[in-house]
Amino acid sequence: MSKLITLIIDDKQVEAKEGERLLWVALDNGIYIPHLCDLRMARRTVASCRLCFVEIEGLPNPVTSCTQTVSEGMVVRTRSPRVDRLLRTGFELLLSNHRLHCAKCAKNKRCELQKIAKERGLKLKLTRLRQLVKEAQIDESPGVFCYDSSKCVLCGRCIWADQEQVKVGAIGFIRRGIGRKVATFEDGLLADSICTQCEACVKICPVGAFYLKEDERKPYKIKKEC
């Protein structure tokens, strides 16, 4: 069942268990592939962020490495003009709906988007596309953390943590299309929901959507007390 096989990723010979997912095989072997939505421990791949494209010899088009299982003799390229182009567009699309203010962001230097930009030489600035994001929508109701939906990339990790890991069920996806959002019942405040404030969502969020209040830079924090 878990037979060992060998495959080649970017000219490097790699061993892996048959049926393992390519994204994690590459990451385990020190080969970086940009990714946001996939979780190693989750039962099912969601394949929603569309950033982990790779080329596989014999397949006509780039495929997402999170949905691709490895097999004997597979030859993989994590970079190609087509992969780079898809990543650039996908990344820019996410940025176009992400409130960009890295310097003031609580997750500055620990953000997956920054990591992808650094690894792939992409700008953290919109050049081709129009900015879609609206103003900040910050829920400061929980005791030690905040939720800023204008920074959310809809990877769904927090929902997995909330529903599958800690089994609370306070947050989920609501609405659809461009209106799709991570929210509580009736899109209310976290503190008014069944949220236990366990911070599992904060730990798993790859960007600055869920963040600890203490990480927010003091000078920019406006305290509301009333």
Partner: peptide, 22 residues
Amino acid sequence: TQKESCGKCTFCRLGTKQMLDI
């Protein structure tokens, strides 16, 4: 399509919106 997109994946959710705006 933008209104009917489920919103799950990046390209469809944001790509159709960008194309629509243009």
